[in-house]
Design a protein around this nucleic acid. Structure first.
Lengths: 334, 334
DNA sequence: CTGAAAGCGCTAACAC
DNA sequence: GTGTTAGCGCTTTCAG
């Protein structure tokens, strides 16, 4: 075990004071070229590493960002987290990643822990409302959640417009539009549902009995889902077009339609949401609304960096990232 | 912005010394029930949070574990990371997750950063050899990498036996066995290849021309892969059984076989490795060797905890986690 | 250009 | 049962 060497020992080796060493390390203040060389070579020889705990304590800044994510195992979220982590790393920050499991309680606990670790900022990816973050006075940026507070930084995909576009496409290609969603309080879901109904309204289509809400809140796309089966069976339209709240539900819907012997995409069309990996892996490949995860992540990081650079700026900003429709094999060409 | 309150202020409020407050907080040493109450209520009122940076500096312990992972976006890795994070959290540790992108350079950088952050331990998930961790004197446990050092803690699936079992199954169900692998130096790959050839040897099957090594190192399972196409076309056996080095390659193989009009699983059988989500999503669902991610993660965490509890113990341990064959629809029943 | 010294928030002897 | 104090490794005035 190598001994951990401190700035003090570097100072001794070089015959200078710790202050001088510190100056050299941070290239801050003045020092002669000669001392610089001495210090630098001593650092190299000893393998000295600055102790970020001490620096953090002193500067009241940890250089760590906390990332709260519902489920790292979900393709959409992991893509966002990965990009955030990369972008933060480029800015000199490390990331503590926390799985909230969509639990408000876990979220609260993690917020507490992060705050104790003196993280400089937090990125919360979540669609569920919660107000635990009110106890914490650390810069936060929200991805996809729009909290009910005065001053906030929110990055979100254009869920409303994405749903509108998907539904319009279904209608335009000759299908009678339906929506399958899940039981949740997520604001993103609400926006998508709103987009669906607005599209219907624009086309003056009767809106009754067009929505199925799955009771399973599980992610498990392989759930035996009899709800979807019954729902689809009961639709009398010849050409059925289903907009699903996400790609996992699209996958369930696809499997159900296949089981019912539906002809896809001629008589049965599906458009999912998220453009998660599953939509490309399924057979046939599922058309979906693409969320630009890279831009979501980069914008979130960028805004957080701006906030950190100027913490007193209230910065009440909401940034909407456009979505776009990816046509695959569960839709007809336009 | 609430002011950050320190132990000193709690002490003032309660009219006691900081030492006493510290004792109460850590339930360590003696204090009267009365002071305990006073301190506790002051903490509650003020919303005091212990500063882990200061604690860490003092105790030389950060309560953070670093996790190095090749790609958080990969279903297998994200499952392991998630479980590690949960298990560590239960033990009072936070996790800094770092994507190495399979780059030795990035790995080295992250190792440096983690070490500066004074992490108490590191979990490295990686199959590629590298020796940057030699510069760091922090307890490390390796998942799937078996470094060439004296004293180490290694957790690994039984890649050899998994491959052996898969190949045997292919042979037993009447297929002529082949293997498709990727170009990599990963030890896990080597073990799997070894398992494949040993199974062949056991059955006295001629081993020439049974392996295709894909040159694409990319994860992108949708790569147009002409190599696989040519390879499969050139096989003259009536019943072809392919063991693939992982599920992404199994997916490519499946798509290729489908394109060639092969009858699956009657004339063409596939077994992948990892049991990643993709194997369940594909149509038909792909049989695969299941790696027990939960146990991998839990064992790794547990051994790391043991090491941290007793750092001077050299603990040269290698723990092999059994795999098992999951039969789905790319294999014949036995 | 450099050094001395204070102090970030906390814990752990040591004293009483 | 409680207070005093030193010090973890570092940055940052303030002197000189």
């Amino acid at each position: 075990m190598k001994e951990q060497v401190s700035i003090k020992q570097i100072a001794e080796i070089c015959g200078v004071s710790v202050a001088t060493v510190s100056r050299v390390i941070n290239d801050n203040g003045r020092f002669s070229e000669e001392t610089r060389q001495k210090v630098l070579s001593a650092i190299k020889q000893t393998g000295y590493k600055p102790n970020k705990l001490a620096i953090g304590l002193r500067k009241n800044k940890s250089n760590i960002i906390g990332i709260l994510v519902p489920d790292i195992t979900n393709g959409f979220y992991s893509a966002v987290v990965k990009k955030c982590e990369q972008a933060l790393s480029k800015n000199g920050y490390s990331s503590i990643v926390c799985n909230t499991d969509r639990s408000a309680e876990k979220e609260a606990n993690y917020l507490q822990t992060l705050s104790e670790h003196m993280v400089d900022g937090i990125i919360i990816i979540s669609t569920n409302p919660s107000d635990h973050y009110l106890n914490v006075n650390i810069p936060i940026v929200f991805i996809d959640r729009n909290p009910d507070i005065e001053s906030k930084i929110v990055i979100t995909s254009d869920h409303y417009y994405g749903a509108l576009e998907a539904t319009n496409y279904l209608i335009k290609t000759g299908f009678s539009p339906y929506i399958i969603t899940t039981k949740t309080k997520a604001i993103t879901t609400k926006e998508r549902v709103r987009g669906f109904y607005d599209a219907i309204k624009q086309h003056k289509i009767d809106s009754t009995d067009r929505m199925l809400t799955l009771h399973s809140t599980s992610n498990e796309f392989l759930d035996k889902n009899t709800e979807a089966l019954t729902f689809i069976k009961n639709i009398s339209d010849k050409k059925i077009g289903i907009f699903t709240i996400n790609d996992n539900v699209a996958y369930i819907t696809l499997q159900t339609a296949l089981k019912l012997g539906k002809k896809i995409p001629d008589d049965f069309s599906i458009i999912g949401f998220d453009d998660a990996p599953i939509s490309k892996i399924a057979t046939p490949q599922i058309s979906s609304i693409h969320q630009n995860t890279d831009e979501l992540a980069e914008k979130a990081t960028q805004l957080l960096m701006e906030k950190l650079a100027d913490p007193d700026n209230p910065m009440n900003v909401t940034k909407t990232i456009p979505t776009n429709l990816i046509l695959r094999n569960t839709t007809l060409p336009s």
